[in-house]
């Protein structure tokens, strides 16, 4: 079970996360945020694997990614090997 959370108020609409997502989870909104831009939002969250590539590319550092990891299982995605502070 994975979850991607985007602070859409601060999104500047660069779409780098859209390109980065291998599952096509993220899409740009039809509506505008307070900055007047179409913001990135998780459109098909059910397909999210929690790989974290979107967060890796986000210049605003406004994407958080969560996922359940099975016990004993090594960190699978590149994000979890390298980028991102983990808690």
């Amino acid at each position: 079970m994975a979850k991607v959370i985007i602070d859409t108020r601060r999104c500047k609409g660069c779409e780098l996360c859209v390109d980065a997502c291998p599952q096509g989870v993220i899409a740009m909104s039809k509506s505008l945020n307070d900055k007047g831009v179409h913001f990135a939002q998780p459109a098909r969250l059910e397909d999210c694997t929690g790989c974290g590539l979107c967060a890796i590319m986000c210049p605003e550092a406004i994407i958080e990614v969560e996922r359940e990891e099975a016990q004993g299982q090594g960190p699978p995605g590149p994000a979890h090997r390298g980028s991102g502070a983990r808690s």
């Binding site: 779409e15 831009v37 986000c58 605003e60 550092a61 958080e64 969560e66 990891e69 983990r86």
Partner: peptide, 26 residues
């Protein structure tokens, strides 16, 4: 076990002045 990618502590939780898609933020 939950794994989470969050904003690093060493980065203030503020908005930058950079243009959309600027590499500086990364």
């Amino acid at each position: 076990m939950k794994s989470k990618i969050t904003r690093p502590e060493s980065l203030k939780n503020v908005e930058t002045h950079y243009c959309a898609g600027c590499g500086h933020g990364i």
